[in-house]
């Protein structure tokens, strides 16, 4: 029975590849652009690591299960992930986000900067996993972006635009994408299913979310092939406090987001890409990809999940890219703050 099922799936994949969705072989091919971007990213990451210089020690307090500990970590090098590694495997597996001094939301792979008290957030964090949920939704959008860039055939040229600020209550996470050679596309159920499967496949590769703040010039260099991001970067820099653009990388996919993101893609559990809607905007025709997903530790029966899937099919009411316009300048300005804190 199982074997029969897998055959069917392969069959689907084959027939669909004739239409729009690429086969798994093409999925793995790194294009030249990707290699160039990743090279720049690696170099900058290495440079920043070397710039730390003389290693200083900081004290990190952790109060919570399984035990209260005081850790002596390296300033500018050690991350919350390293702290979790010192404490317990359970913390490594379930934590998606760190809370520093009870105020600052901190990525799992972002180096700590001073003495602090650390806490780890997960899907069942009490009293309220609100911030984890937001980070989760944001990370889902980023993973969706990674899937979209790779899932289509070469000649369709998907260009990522952006994703709105995460709102779990809207019922779906979103990525707005331009598909140059697909002016009129409404995806079939099987195409959506393949996108969903690609989401899960990518997540299961357990990619870390690498966080890297970079200068405007470097960001422009990395995104020189993306006309939308090139436009957005100057505005992001204007809004940020330290004139930096924050990049995230999963595997070889690089994207801009203010974060914070999860620590690892393997926290993504069930996932469905529910619908793709066409949007008419100032930047041309964009496609709004929508999906719904639950973290790995959250169990839900299939009926309740199908309700969520149905809801995710309706067009997400998040603002369209051209509705971000403010009165002063008429270019796209994503919401961008240097650091997210608990208000």
């Amino acid at each position: 029975m199982k074997r029969f099922g897998s055959c069917l799936y392969r069959n689907y994949n084959y027939t669909l590849s004739k239409r729009y969705v690429s086969m798994s072989k093409e999925f793995e091919i790194k294009s030249e652009i990707l290699a160039y971007q990743n090279n720049l990213f690696d170099k900058e990451q290495k440079r920043q690591r070397e710039a730390v210089g003389r290693i200083e020690k900081i004290t990190v307090n952790y109060n919570g299960p399984p035990e209260n500990v005081v850790l002596s970590m390296n300033k500018g090098i050690s991350t919350p992930y390293h702290c979790a590694k010192h404490i317990s495997e359970m913390l490594i597996k379930r934590s998606g986000l760190a809370l520093i001094d009870g105020i600052h939301l901190w990525d799992m792979h972002r180096p700590l900067e001073s003495d602090c008290e650390i806490n780890f957030m997960h899907a069942q964090y009490l009293p309220d996993p609100y911030h984890f949920n937001r980070a989760y939704w944001r990370s889902c959008s980023l993973i969706l972006g990674a899937v979209i860039t790779k899932a289509f055939r070469e000649d369709i040229l998907p260009t990522l635009h952006s994703f709105p600020s995460p709102n779990v209550k809207s019922g779906s996470f979103v990525y707005d994408v331009e598909l140059s050679n697909l002016p009129e596309w409404s995806p079939s159920d099987n195409e959506l299913r393949i996108l969903s499967a690609n989401m899960v496949k990518l997540a299961q590769k357990s990619y870390q979310f690498d966080r890297l703040p970079v200068s405007e010039e470097l960001a422009l260099d990395i995104f020189q092939d993306n006309k939308f991001k090139k436009e957005q970067i100057p505005n992001i820099v204007q809004q940020s406090v330290d004139k930096k653009v924050i990049l995230y990388r999963i595997g070889d996919h690089i994207d801009i987001s203010r974060g914070p993101m999860l620590g690892n893609t393997d926290l993504l559990g069930r996932c469905t890409i529910a619908a793709v809607h066409r949007l008419e905007t100032k930047d041309g025709n964009l496609y709004r990809f929508q999906g719904v997903s639950l973290p790995k530790n959250i169990m839900l029966n299939h009926f309740a999940y199908s309700i969520l899937e149905q809801r995710a099919k309706k067009i997400n009411a998040a603002r369209l890219p051209d509705q971000y316009l403010n009165d002063l300048n008429d270019t796209f300005v994503p919401q961008f703050v240097a650091e997210e804190t608990i208000a």
Binding site: A123, L126, P129, N133, G171, V292, L294, I298, R311
Partner: peptide, 19 residues
């Protein structure tokens, strides 16, 4: 009993109910 109202699936289901 844990207060599970704010877990992601319950938030989503609550909003689906409202819609």
């Amino acid at each position: 009993k844990l207060d599970q109202r704010n877990f992601i699936h319950n938030v989503l289901l609550e909003e689906a109910k409202k819609a």
